[in-house]
Nucleic acid binder design. Structure first.
Length: 265
DNA sequence: AAGATTATCAACCGCAAGCGC
DNA sequence: CGCGCTTGCGGTTGATAATCT
């Protein structure tokens, strides 16, 4: 038997959405709100499957969606976040207001992956190699692909952050504020069902469940405003930094908008 | 100018997590 | 605890556009 299909495929419209369909879907959601995607097509008199409606709404019709023209700043951020998070498109998109996971995924696959992997196409591509900073590409290339982080904190409860931009940890490795668990003397990263071992860092990266992250801000898009937020949440002044400061993961998660990803122990 | 090739991206698909019963 | 349903995610496909030869 298997499970019930999400819709009866025969007779259901597929492919590109028409203006009329967009209008019907938009009107319905504006009136009744998002959700109940499975029953939405019938209620809205749309000859589409619920999944298709959700995708169309989430990626194109809802308010605040930006289309195209990804800026060099956004590209840099995508590259840095991809190095941090791997193919976790929804999380990456969450850091780029107005961008959808689908758009970022497509952009990565068609443009950015070629840049960071140095795959110069035989064909000239105007977008290629124009925008992303050399530094981002080099940083990405120097990274180890198994350093994929899932933003789920387990046992580490605090971290030490440095605002000293540009200063990298030994081996130029990135040790972001996510998913660190302590298992005896090993420091590991948990991602989906896999656990990736982190390169061992000799100089006490973890003492009393506190992770030291000298270069955290190089990998996170922290504006001065957000840094100020951190000080506020931590009840600290910038002058208190000497040279690292301690922060609860919970506060950091909140600043990153990742509260839901955080997990208590 | 036309056919071939390649790039782009909207949409589809299967899977799994989360939730209520 | 197990089951079924809903939703969201990430990989993949395929139509179309852009570029090359």
């Amino acid at each position: 038997m298997g499970r019930k299909p999400c819709c009866f495929k025969e007779g259901v419209n597929r492919g590109a959405w028409s203006l009329q369909e967009d209008k019907i879907l938009t009107n319905y959601i504006e009136l009744h709100g998002e959700g109940k995607w499975r029953s939405l097509p019938q209620k809205a008199c749309l000859n589409r499957c619920g999944k298709s409606c959700r995708l169309r709404w989430m990626n194109y019709l809802r308010q605040g969606i930006k289309r195209g023209n990804i800026s060099p700043e956004e590209e840099d951020l995508i590259v840095r976040l991809h190095r941090l998070l791997g193919n976790r498109w929804s999380l990456i998109a969450g850091r780029l207001p107005g961008r959808t996971d689908n758009e970022i995924k497509n952009y990565w696959n068609s443009v950015l992956s070629k840049k960071v992997n140095g795959d110069v196409s035989k064909r000239s591509n105007k977008q290629l190699y124009e925008c992303v900073s050399k530094e981002s590409v080099e940083n990405y290339r120097s990274g180890i692909t198994t350093n994929v982080i899932a933003p789920k904190a387990t046992r580490c409860t605090k971290m030490l952050l440095s605002l000293d931009k540009g200063k990298h940890l030994m081996n130029d490795q990135c040790h972001p504020p996510a998913s660190t668990i302590v298992d005896d003397d090993e420091l590991k990263l948990e991602s989906h069902n896999e656990v990736h071992e982190m390169p061992y860092v000799e100089d006490e990266p973890l003492i009393d469940n506190v992770l030291t992250m000298p270069n955290a801000f190089d990998y996170l898009d922290f504006s001065q405003t957000r840094i100020n937020d951190i000080f506020e949440k931590s009840n600290m002044l910038e002058t208190d930094l000497a040279p690292m400061f301690e922060m609860e993961f919970e506060n950091l998660a909140s600043l990153l908008g990742l509260e839901d990803e955080w997990r208590d122990v």
